[in-house]
Every structure is written in C-alpha cells, then in structure tokens.
Design a binder for these strands. Structure first.
Lengths: 152, 152
DNA sequence: ACGACATGATTACACGACGGAACAAATGAC
DNA sequence: GTCATTTGTTCCGTCGTGTAATCATGTCGT
C-alpha cells in the first residue's frame, strides 16, 4: 500500500496530533450538531459539570477559552436554559454560571456520546495502548500548562 | 497543584490531541511567520520535497488539503519563486508543481525548524516515549486513512 | 465526428475557532 | 476621592476548512 502522506509530516507529532484531533472530533461534532451546539459548548458544559458553578473568567481560564468568546457560548446555552447566569452579590462585576437541571441531563448524554466517539477513534489500538496514548498526551498538555503559567 | 482543566476533557483523546497540536504548532508557526508563510505552505513544501513534482490535485489529496485552497498557497509560493507551475503537455488541464532550488533550500531550513519545535513540544517525554507517542498517533491516522479510502 | 460526461484548476462565498483591542461597570488601593 | 485593575462585553481581523459555480480540457459512447 502506498504511503499516502508525506513522511516529513508523518514524523511531526504536531501534524499527527492535529489529524487525530480532527478525526476524533468528527463524530462528536456530529452528535453536537444534531442538538444545534458546537465543540466549545460541550467544553463549557463539561467544565461546569466537573467544577460546579464558576465566574465566567475562571471558567474561561480553566477551559483555555478566550473570555470574549465564552460570552457568545453562554448566551446560546442560557437561551436554551442549559445554564444560568447570576450576578455575584459579593462582587457585582462577576456572573456566576450554573448548570440547570436540563443542562446536567444534556451534559450526561453528551459525555456518553463523547466516550463512544473516542472508541471509534481508537478502535485501532488495544486498551493498554489507548491508556498509554492518553497518558502521554496528557503529560505534554500538563507540562505546557505549567510552563505557560510560569511565563505569564 | 490544582487540576486546571476539566477531567472530563482530559480524558478525551481528541481534546488532548487538539491541544498538543496547537502547542506544537505555536513554535513552527512562529518560524514560518518570520518568512511570511503559514502552516499549509510548509505542508506543500514538505509534500513536494518528499514526493517530487506532482499535479495540483494529487498534491492536495496527499496533503489532505482542499484543492481550491491549494491554489492560493501555490500562488504565494510561486510569487516567491519557491515553486514553479508548468502545464503538463500530456494533459493540458494539469499543472505540474515543482520545487525550485530556492524552494528546496527553504524547505531544508524549515524541516530543521520543525524538528526543533517538536523537541520543545516533547521535552517532557523520554526518547522512547516520544517514539511510542508518534507511533500510536500514526497508527490512528493511517487506520482512518484506510477507512476513509474504503468508504469513498 | 459529435455530444454527454468527467476531470483539473480557479474563483467566490461561508463558517468555526481563535487572538486581541477597546469599552463600561464595578471594585480595590492609596 | 482619585486612579488603576478586574469583569464581562462588543467588535474586528486572521487562519483553517467546506462547498458551490465556472471554465478549459480530456474521455467516452455511439
């Protein structure tokens, strides 16, 4: 079988990782699209589900999202009653973002969809290899998070 | 140290891979920007370097690029005398794209820059772990290439 | 040889993800 | 009380990608 892609690029982890990400997102993005949502919406829901209510700036930082873009994502989620925004009485600049019951339910569904999509993505790998891959990727991300935190 | 990112997302390979890709591209994109180029330009140069002269549609397919976008990338590269376009006399619809001498020289430079950027990206991992990561990522990409080739 | 269809390159338009500037309201430091 | 900082927001630009329409060329059926 022919080597389709250029060996130079197949040797670059960033190129490979980019393609793996796109492959994995195809399915999940499809599931989200059926519900009229996109990937960052899912990230927001997942963040609120994991961390509980947060101010917008804290949520944006934890997700690596730009604060200005989070505004639009929350507008949409709030419009659908998936999240609620309440002014923090202790600091009235802050908006406390909370998952509604409907938001919790949808997040649960989407988490399951996400799990399924990753099974498809990693079908080629054994269970042990999947763990290895995830662990290596996570170490690279975490190391960079630390480095960025240090230089900022 | 606090867990910054949501565990739900840190368990998703596609999320992790996406971030790793962005981290790795930061450096390379910086090196390219100094030369007024962007990532797809590098992919084009790398493809031509690995495969030799190709028609545009073949090049686009091998790089996973949209044919219509390749046009613009080649316009820019041609303007700088990094690549040449010649009509194929056997099929005058086709444009044969070739690396010029200047293009070969720049591609060599950029490949070295790319190597360096990946060292930074994977600084956290041992040599053996890097190999493992690359090999696992590549298997996922190749498996998907085959699957896509089958369904098209 | 002719017409229908396919292929290759190009142009144009649209969208999703991202980065950053500028701003008003609210808060904090002094 | 004044000034700087924080928070959320609006706006604009860039990059990467998908898709439709167009035109020239080539291929195939008859």
């Amino acid at each position: 079988m022919d080597e389709l892609r250029p060996p130079t690029l197949l040797a670059l982890p960033s190129y490979l990782a980019g393609h793996v990400a796109r492959i994995g997102r195809r399915e999940l993005a499809g599931a989200l699209e059926k519900r009229g949502l996109r990937l960052p919406h899912f990230a927001v829901l997942a963040g609120l589900s994991d961390f509980g209510p947060l101010a917008q700036h804290a949520l944006a930082d934890r997700l690596g999202l730009n604060r200005s873009h989070l505004v639009g994502y929350l507008d949409e989620l709030e419009r659908r009653d998936l999240v609620g925004r309440e002014r923090d009485p202790d600091d009235r600049r802050r908006q406390r973002v909370t998952l509604t019951e409907a938001g919790k339910a949808l997040t649960g569904e989407l988490k399951r969809e996400a799990g399924r999509s990753q099974d498809v993505l990693l079908a080629e790998l054994s269970a042990k290899e999947r763990e290895t891959l995830i662990s290596l990727l996570r170490r690279v991300v975490v190391a960079d998070d630390r480095a960025q935190a240090g230089t900022e």
